[in-house]
Amino acid sequence: MSGMSNTPHVPMIPTGEKASWNAIINSRIFDNINIDSNAILLDVLRDSTGMLGVKRGCDLGTCGCCAVLIDGVPKLSCLTLAAETKGKEITTVEGLADGAHLHPIQKTFAECGGSQCGFCTPGFLVVISALLNENNNPDDKEIKDAIEGNLCRCTGYQQIIESVHAAANILNSKEEVEDNTTAKIDPHPGIDRVQE
């Protein structure tokens, strides 16, 4: 913990030089981002590119809240140096939906109770989206193996696993997830519109 030691402090990571960093995050080009050369990807994503959907839970690679896809592969951004990802393609939870069309796993997470407090949700979603990319019909064991690095304190994982199955069903049926911006319930039902 910061400031708890009485001994003279030797920083674990000496302050680095400033460096220029670039990446494609959620299909958006980020160029000439000025970062510390020893910056952690998680900090760069949250503080320099505004990707606040990537969460910081433990700083130790134990909770999985900070998971992102780097060139399609799930990685923990708290254990990744930003410099390693220079020029790569990064997907965060913000990049899963296609405009207003949610990714099937986002839709089913909401519908099946996969998300309660929602803080671990971004990490789960990117990991599961990578799993579904490779395997659109995973069984329980494959799902568990995929999310074993993610901690969830609310759901007990069961409804998360159900959400993955439901999302796989959507993917296999090629059903389109509807546009989230279409009109919701009409408050004035019962009038025959055809008549007018």
Binding site: L52, G53, V93, E94, F109, A110, S115, G118, N180
Partner: peptide, 20 residues
């Protein structure tokens, strides 16, 4: 489904440290 779940699944939910 929770009424705020779409905020959570899209990463738009603002938790304590997300208030900037």
């Amino acid at each position: 489904p929770l009424v705020d779940s779409n905020w959570k699944v899209t990463g738009q939910a603002k938790y304590g440290d997300d208030i900037r």
